[in-house]
């Protein structure tokens, strides 16, 4: 959990999100007619690592909580499409 830097500025949040995103390489057959997808990504959101939420967790200020969709920075996980972003 330590390397799981929790920072809630917009861009850092994306960096954090990448660190919880995992990927795997599907098998590509020799005679595959379509353009193969070499890497597939799947999300592992923070709540998977959190278990039972400890009391006294850091909170967003209310206006920001409304914008971000959660009161808890530890659970904030915005989605950025891995296939589109360069």
């Amino acid at each position: 959990m330590e390397n799981f830097m929790i920072n809630n500025t917009m861009n850092n949040a994306n960096v954090m999100q990448q660190s919880t995103r995992k990927s795997y390489e599907p098998f590509v057959g020799r005679y595959d007619p379509c353009k193969p997808i070499t890497v597939k990504y799947y999300e592992t959101p923070p709540q998977l690592y959190l278990g039972f939420q400890p009391p006294g967790l850091e909170q967003f200020p209310p206006p920001e909580a409304l914008k971000r969709g959660t009161l808890w920075p530890a659970l904030y996980a915005p989605y950025s499409n891995p296939y589109e972003t360069p």
Binding site: P62, A65, L66
Partner: peptide, 11 residues
């Protein structure tokens, strides 16, 4: 009101 209500839902 909306901001407070959202925080109240989360809490």
């Amino acid at each position: 009101i909306q901001i407070l209500d959202f925080t109240l839902v989360e809490l």
